[in-house]
Computed example of a mutant assay.
Amino acid sequence: MCGRYSLSKSKLELEERFQAEMLGDFQPRYNIAPTQLVPVITSDSPKGFSFFYWGITPDFAKNKPVSQKFINAKAETVHQKASFKNSFKTRRCLVPADGFFEWKRVGKKTKIPYRFTIGDGEPFSFAGIWEEYENEKGETKHTFLILTTEPNSIVQEIHDRMPVILKKSDEKKWLDKYSKDEELLSMLGTYTAEKMQSYTVSQQVNQVSNDNPSLIKKTSPMDQFGNYTLFG
């Protein structure tokens, strides 16, 4: 599962990295959570950023509020599931990020938050699919979800799934409406552990309302709990 991620880069950095224009302002985000409105790049508009809600209402379930949602789909079966296969074929997107969070359970009540990044904290993209639907008021809404896959050796220590991180060289093909299913599925493997790193962060990330630069800074176990033995 991927239930929280960060996008701490500036508008200019994102436009340069993804070669797409972002109309309007953008403030860096340090604790993105489901139901929030965040930037994506879609197969319909690959030269610009769109702002969609994280959490898809399946296209077979019309007129449901955003709160009744999915946030992830398994990459292994996304092309087969009735709720996702149409989006997989025609409505794919890049979800820009520069890190994601998972929680390691220690004991019965304690969960320790970790942040996972690539390289020196460079921006990258999750593989996503998007949907358009009408809510109960007849308003058109756009939503997306993030595909997940088997974890690599770094993520495996914390969680049994991880988001699909696309290679930069695959991003254009992921958005290309003419890409074949076989080619698309081949992009959805596990990202190599050698290019990733992880570290513990503040418990403040547990609260969705917290969204500031301190959330992505490395925090030692002693700072969080006053006890290093939790990591023994």
Results as ranks from 00 to 15, higher is better:
Ile71Ala: 01
Leu94Phe: 07
Gln80Lys: 14
Asn63Ala: 14
Ala75Asp: 13
Glu76Arg: 01
Pro96Met: 09
Val95Trp: 00
Tyr53Leu: 11
Arg91Asn: 15
Leu94Arg: 03
Lys85Ser: 07
Lys74Phe: 06
Lys81Phe: 04
Lys81Pro: 09
Asp59Gln: 10
Trp54Ile: 01
Thr57Lys: 13
Asp59Lys: 11
Asn72His: 05
Pro58Tyr: 02
His79Trp: 10
Ala97Tyr: 05
Arg91Val: 08
Thr77Ala: 08
Pro96Ile: 06
Gly55Arg: 00
Pro65Tyr: 08
Ala82Ser: 15
Lys81Glu: 03
Thr77Arg: 06
Val95Gln: 00
His79Gly: 00
Ala97Ile: 06
Lys69Leu: 13
Gln68Leu: 11
Arg92Leu: 04
Arg91Gly: 04
Ser87Gln: 06
Lys85Thr: 05
Lys69Glu: 04
Lys62Ser: 15
Pro65Ile: 08
Lys62Pro: 09
Arg92Phe: 10
Asn63Lys: 14
Phe88Asn: 00
Phe84Tyr: 14
Lys64Asn: 10
Tyr53Ile: 14
Cys93Ile: 05
Pro65Phe: 13
Val95Cys: 00
Lys89Ala: 15
Gln80Asn: 08
Pro65Asp: 12
Leu94Thr: 04
Ile56Ser: 10
Pro96Gly: 12
Ile71Met: 03
Phe70Cys: 12
Lys69His: 10
Thr77Phe: 07
Thr77Ile: 05
Val95Gly: 03
Val78Lys: 12
Thr90Lys: 15
Glu76Ala: 01
Ser87Ala: 15
Val95Leu: 01
Lys74Thr: 05
Ala75Pro: 06
Lys62Tyr: 09
Ala73Trp: 02
Ala73Arg: 10
Glu76Thr: 04
Pro58Lys: 01
Thr90Leu: 11
Asn72Gln: 11
Tyr53Met: 03
Phe52Ala: 03
Phe84Trp: 14
Asn63Glu: 15
Pro65Thr: 09
Lys85Tyr: 05
Lys85Met: 07
Arg92Ile: 07
Gln80Asp: 10
Gly55Gln: 05
Thr90Glu: 07
Pro58Glu: 02
Asn63Leu: 13
Asn72Glu: 04
Ala97Met: 11
Lys62Trp: 08
Val78Arg: 11
Leu94Met: 04
Val78Leu: 04
Thr90Met: 02
Ser83Arg: 04
Leu94Pro: 04
Phe52Pro: 02
Val95Met: 00
Ser83Thr: 04
Lys74Ser: 09
Cys93Trp: 02
Lys85Phe: 05
Ala73Ser: 07
Phe70Lys: 14
Cys93Lys: 02
Lys74Gln: 12
Leu94Glu: 09
Ala82Thr: 15
Lys81Gly: 04
Thr57Arg: 14
Lys62Phe: 06
